[in-house]
Design a protein around this nucleic acid. Structure first.
Lengths: 298, 298
DNA sequence: TTTTTGCCATACCGAACTCGTATGGGTGAG
DNA sequence: CTCACCCATACGAGTTCGGTATGGCAAAAA
């Protein structure tokens, strides 16, 4: 009574559709007698005939019809369940929270998002903007699964994959005297106020900038510390000083601010995908593939 | 791979809910090792781990969660399918088209319908009014499953169960002289025009009336032939004549028409449930029970 | 550290189930 | 009347399942 074997249901559906035990047996690649037996067992299990036997085959009874639709659904559901489990395990399905730094929003997301949707259509994507000072915490407390960072996070619990580089450029008001030339010598920055991103000296986000300045023996007083490249650009526009930012930041940059490369330096900052080392979410790997693909073709 | 045994799914759900093979085994009334084996078989069948094994029990993986909800649905669906098949076979579920003659509409339906809905809540009911001349055909061509008739249909393919009787009464205009008395002697009908229901002389619908008149040696000229008691009452109201109708017809009767019993006759007409003899719809039996119950308490 | 405890995994055996082959039986068609 | 068709039954072989006994591992207790 409490058998409810799916095999029986599959047999039942086949017989119902073929309206014949013999034909159903062919379809199921088995002999006719055992199929006949299984159908009768199912009927005794349910407690009522499911077919009317005629000389020309079998025909469903009303009770059989009532069972048929549900049997089909149950079969489809378990098949779907298996497939869903496989898809989740393979990272083709699930939920993925992507954190990103603002500076990358215009440079990467417009190409990355369509690519993700295309290659992982069943994945539920969520995008969260991260600030420089909270990105680690957001990864560690699981509020994002992966983070697009610039530069990479350094943390023992966090794994990093560098997917590209962005050259440092100088951002300044459009009217600035330095903006007249196509490229700026580093030494011309001497003494000018700097809008700086946060973090300790060890933080590579700023240390790339400081090492660039140190190498050219240039010092810039820190006029402001801000959280995001966006804020930095606002302050540049306000005339508070200049900022040294990755090239991609100019894509979201307000009019009135111009970017110039350095004449005598091509320092670059890493763009990286970061995720918890203990994350067993297979989506991370697939996300990485997409991100690399997008960066490569850029 | 193509096993998809429901037993495994049942085991899986139990383990997932108990978060422990041991406890699930207790719930399933089986030993722990075989359950452990079945879970591993399921995992190898799906192709991916469904649980994370800790020292404190088992915990679902994301893939396991994806499977769990569908497994539950599939189990519920097959159980429901079995139950539905049983319900259909027992006549507690399905579709039932009930035909009825107009004269019974007010007398029987208001009590029958609630009773049907109460005792057969999952049955899909449909009510169709039948006219005297088509009721047989509607039964035979399956457009109704059962018919509430008065009198019973006589046909070799149709089975009949008499559930009550209705006394014949005289319907006449309210101002009629015969209406002054509480009861009417049959002989007073002599020569008055009769509004007659259809059918050949053999038709019991009319033969009950003709036999009543013949017994009292009274003859009434047939003024009109109509299809339903409703039409007969309209013509009575219009002064076309009188009608001899079952008592229940007065419930739907327009003001201006009055019913009187006969002083010296208590002829009655059968109320019956009729259905195709070859109908294997078990709902018929349950319908009959309801109908008898309703009539009995009337 | 060592012991104990709790839980899952493996091994093996007896029982149940399923499937295939062979065969019977009932019903229309030729 | 025979043939053809289809479903039902019988029986033996192989597979699978469940129970018992036991191993192994890790966290909690001593």
């Amino acid at each position: 009574m409490a058998k409810m074997d799916l095999r029986r249901l599959r047999y039942f559906v086949a017989v119902a559709e073929e309206r014949s035990v013999g034909r159903a047996a062919v379809r199921l690649r088995m002999a006719q007698p055992p199929l006949s037996v299984q159908i009768r067992k199912l009927e005794s299990e349910v407690g009522t005939p499911l077919f009317r036997r005629g000389t020309r085959g079998m025909e469903l009874t009303a009770a059989g019809r009532a069972l048929l639709s549900r049997a089909r659904e149950a079969l489809a559901l378990t098949a779907e369940g298996f497939e869903a489990a496989r898809a989740v395990a393979a990272g083709r399905r699930g939920r993925l929270s992507v954190g990103y730094m603002f500076a990358l929003a215009h440079a990467v997301l417009p190409r990355l998002v369509p690519e993700l949707r295309r290659s992982l259509p069943k994945v539920d994507l969520e995008f969260i903007e991260l600030s420089a000072s909270t990105r680690e915490a957001r990864l560690l407390d699981h509020s994002v699964t992966v983070a697009l960072c610039m530069p990479a996070i350094r943390h023992s619990e966090i794994e990093v994959s560098t997917i590209g580089k962005q050259r440092l450029m100088l951002a300044m008001p459009a009217g600035s005297q330095l903006a007249r030339a196509a490229a700026v010598p580093v030494r011309k920055l001497q003494g000018r106020p700097l809008i700086s991103l946060p973090g300790p000296a060890e933080d590579p986000a700023t240390s790339v900038v400081t090492s660039l300045l140190r190498r050219h023996q240039v010092s810039m007083p820190v006029a402001n510390r801000v959280e995001t490249a966006h804020s930095a650009l606002s302050l540049v526009l306000a005339g508070e000083g200049m900022a040294i930012l990755p090239a991609c930041a100019q894509l979201g940059c307000p009019t009135g601010v111009v970017f110039r490369p350095f004449l005598d330096a091509d320092d670059a900052i890493d763009v990286a995908v970061c995720w918890r080392r203990d994350s067993l979410n297979p989506l991370v790997r697939n996300f990485l593939k997409c991100a690399e693909k997008v960066i490569r073709q850029a």
